[in-house]
Design a binder for these strands. Structure first.
Ligand code: NAD
Ligand code: NAD
Lengths: 241, 241
DNA sequence: GGCATGTTGTGAAAAAATTCACAGATACCA
DNA sequence: TGGTATCTGTGAATTTTTTCACAACATGCC
């Protein structure tokens, strides 16, 4: 393991590799090569190997990677090897989808408490939880000890909520509100913006269709007509988990 | 306007600039400098100017940018200057949040139809819409003419749905399912993965807190102690819309 | 063992993205 | 009018990220 900082794109891809590996394990696959990963994830084999090289050596030349072993390594790197309680703020439409999202558990994330400031909602059930008063945030988290929080309140309330979260000891925030949060340097924030994603899609509609429909068979060419073309295309569809 | 391809990060930031500009217009601000944008968005002034330079010249030296004018330009670039119907597939938890999301309208996106394959759900109301049978996808979109679709079905159904969407004439897909879609080259896909975001947050919890708590006042220094520090920190919180 | 095949890990090269730094434009003021 | 302050747009420098390409290793087969 080197001393170099790990690029953020690498961290993002790690989560994708993990998804692919979990699927493979489910399917009973014991071993995968970097080219298998490329086929399954759309991320190039070289990229995969380089990404892993930031953390150590996990494969065997001539063989590939042990599915089980690599899963364990990536989970350790990403800190997914332990139960992680999270706080959710905002018991609205989006919050409802989030508390009902079963996939969190597969990575040992767990929404441990939900907060709102609407008196009508406080005390009501929300998924498996009871909606708590946002005023009790610090108090409740003293019990839970969550370090991660999700902000799902309207944009104009997000900054205030962020400050309360920081005060309650939160060190990482997933922000769904369309606003740029100002937080102290020890708090890490990631923003999710559906509108941003849609805007990028929209832009591409405006562009000349670089690719014609000719020759599309539904198959990805194993012997690409133009090597760069496959890489470029697949790249765009590759960073899900 | 040059012939260069526009970097994807630039497109993503454009949406953030637009949000900031809309807020400013709302507040009655007529003119903004690139440093104002930096303060409001967390994206550096130089980055902002460079980003715009891919599309032309929009500012006046010594003055800044006309809020109204720049909004119009960015909307045109991002193709947000017209009504855009979208198809939503998957009338589940996430779909419910999406149909109820009012902010889409601010950028002239509109969910024009919702599809599901669950007989119990088909025909029921869903937001302002009635859930349609996925089998009628092509037929319905012949009327609507949507080019953008949102996939909110379980991962194991996503590829099949993507193919149906392509067949129905969709050219851009926002995919919430945790899987890598294979689509023809003329279709542009963006993936949104909450788990990926959480994984990156989780990784950062594991890291040494580079920053100590000393000196944090809750105020962003207007006359930064160390200019680079502010930029670096704010950067992490900067790409919402 | 010797050889063919397949795969990793990684420096080096290339490409992409960001930041710098400054010429030149604009406004304002006395 | 000239002087000062402010701000844009952009080539160039720098930094970051991706891709290439190959030595070194593993396996299986004869
Ligand atoms: N609904 C979506 O699909 C969607 C998509 C992308 C982004 N978002 C964003 O997510 C956020 C939430 O969206 P939503 O659709 O769930 O909104 P919503 O109005 O349904 O829910 C917001 C909830 O936050 C609560 N709230 C408001 N101020 C609060 C405060 N200070 N403290 C605690 N709780 C507070 C409200 O009482 C409400 O229950 C918004 O910022 C929205 O822009 C939503
Ligand atoms: N709920 C969340 O907060 C959340 C967060 C991130 C990602 N996701 C992802 O979004 C997707 C949907 O999540 P959800 O929570 O809404 O799930 P859900 O089970 O509540 O809803 C899925 C819907 O898709 C429908 N469906 C299944 N197969 C279909 C098909 N072939 N054609 C048309 N419709 C079909 C189902 O009938 C159901 O109504 C999943 O892939 C999930 O992983 C959800």
């Amino acid at each position: 393991m080197t001393e170099t900082r790990v690029p953020t794109p690498t961290l993002e891809r790690l989560a994708t590799y993990l998804r692919v590996l979990l699927d493979a394990r489910e399917a009973g696959v014991q071993t995968l090569s970097s080219r298998d990963i490329e086929r399954l994830s759309g991320i190039s084999a070289a990229q995969f190997r380089k990404d892993l090289s930031y953390f150590g050596e996990f494969g065997k030349p001539g063989v590939g990677y042990s599915t089980q072993q690599l899963i364990e390594c990536i989970e350790r790197i990403l800190r997914l090897d332990r139960e992680q309680p999270m706080l959710l703020v905002g018991a609205g439409n989006l919050g409802a989808a989030l508390v009902g999202y079963p996939n969190f558990r597969a990575h040992r994330f767990r929404i441990a408490a939900v907060f709102d400031n609407n008196f009508v909602k406080i005390g009501r059930p929300f998924g498996d939880l009871i909606i708590e008063d946002i005023a009790r945030l610090k108090e409740v988290n003293a019990q839970i000890g969550a370090q991660i929080a999700i902000i799902a309140v309207p944009a104009n309330a997000a900054q205030e909520v962020a400050e309360q979260l920081v005060d309650a000891g939160i060190r990482a925030i997933l922000n769904f509100a369309p606003t740029s949060l100002k937080v102290p340097p020890w708090v890490y924030v990631r923003n999710v913006s559906f509108l941003q994603e849609l805007a990028v899609l929209s832009y591409h509609l405006a562009q000349e269709p670089k690719h014609s429909r000719d020759g599309w068979t539904g198959e990805l060419p194993s012997e690409p007509t133009r090597p760069a073309s496959l890489a470029a295309r697949v790249k765009e569809t590759s960073d899900a988990i």
